[in-house]
């Protein structure tokens, strides 16, 4: 696994650096996940399995519902096992909602938002956590403060603002408002306060490292687990975001959630097709996680690799 080798070598280098004090390497305590050396016992697996079943159940039932007919779904008791209609419903959902463009758009939107949020939040979070500057606590309070105002109503002035810029129905209307979030900045700040020892930055500064170098060589490595988690959460959020995209976009240039909204029309909405759509909207996300999971989790786990 090449991905796991990167932190491994870094780790070793840092340890060496730590031994040779004053060397150009930045000293960094060896980090190790809590109890990581401990293997999970059978009880752990049992508890995790229970959590997993509860977590998965609604998604599995979505798939069951998507494999049935609308009429069967109306009956009691509701179906508890798969029927034979899955591919038929998936096909109908895919066609009716023209999910192809939507998937492409959503991938673009979610990726841009994720990269932007992780990058900008880490920078701002680092500044708030470790640098002293004027108004820093006031600005941080402002950031947290804005999280307290529910955003649902701001949609109205935001749309007027976007329309004035001539952007209605364009993808940047859904990208820009969430390109940076107060949540991300606050999250990174809280993480770095604990995970990034101040001496490390000072040592680097004594060595004459520029700010950018410090960010690249000290902050980013220290922030990796949190960046990975923030990226994961942001991507899911951007993928599933609903209320604003549906106001801001139309079906000729939709995200997945906007496209799914075209399902189940007519006076008798077909629940099984709607469920098939919901499944199609969620599955790519989960498949991507499983495929790239090693990398993402590798980020989360980077501290765990022992030299």
């Amino acid at each position: 696994m090449t991905t796991s080798e990167v932190p491994l070598t870094q780790e070793k280098e840092q340890e060496k650096g730590a031994k040779a004090k004053g060397d150009r390497g930045f000293r960094r305590p060896r980090m190790l996940g809590a109890g990581k050396q401990l293997h999970a016992g059978p009880v752990t697996y049992v508890v995790l399995t229970v959590f997993a079943l509860v977590s998965l159940a609604p998604l599995v039932w979505t798939a069951i519902a998507a494999s049935r007919t609308d009429q069967r779904l109306a009956q009691t008791p509701p179906p508890l096992w798969f029927g034979g209609n899955l591919f038929n419903n998936l096909e109908r959902a895919w066609e009716e909602a023209s999910l192809g463009t939507a998937m492409f758009n959503t991938t673009l939107v979610a990726t841009t938002i994720t990269v932007g949020t992780v990058l900008f939040s880490t920078l701002a979070g680092f500044a708030f956590a470790k640098l002293r500057f004027k108004f820093s606590s006031a600005l941080l309070l402002l950031t947290i403060g804005t999280m307290m105002i529910p955003p649902q109503l701001a949609i109205v002035p935001l749309y007027l603002w976007m329309a004035d810029l001539g952007w209605s129905n364009q993808l940047q209307t859904v990208i820009l408002p969430t390109l940076c979030t107060a949540f991300g900045t606050f999250f990174m700040r809280q993480y770095l306060v604990q995970a990034l020892p101040t001496e490390l930055i000072e040592a680097a500064r004594v060595d004459g490292a520029s700010s950018l170098r410090i960010v690249w060589h000290v902050v980013f490595p220290a922030a990796r687990p949190a960046m990975a988690v923030l990226g994961l959460l942001t991507f899911v959020f951007a993928w599933n975001d609903f209320l604003w995209p549906i106001i801001a976009l139309n079906q000729d240039n939709p995200t997945v959630q906007v496209a799914l909204n075209a399902l189940g029309t007519g006076y008798v909405p077909d629940q099984s097709v709607i469920m098939a759509g919901a499944l199609l909207g969620t599955l790519p996300l989960l498949i991507a996680f499983l495929l790239f999971g090693k990398q993402i989790v590798g980020g989360i786990m980077q501290g765990a690799i022992k030299g």
């Binding site: 939040s121 640098l131 500057f133 804005t146 935001l158 940076c180 979030t181 107060a182 900045t185």
Partner: peptide, 19 residues
């Protein structure tokens, strides 16, 4: 520090704070 927080405040200010 201001350079680090400015991208955040520019986007955030324009599209979250103002609305």
């Amino acid at each position: 520090p201001y350079a680090f927080i400015s991208p955040f405040f520019i986007f955030f200010g324009a599209f979250s704070l103002v609305p």
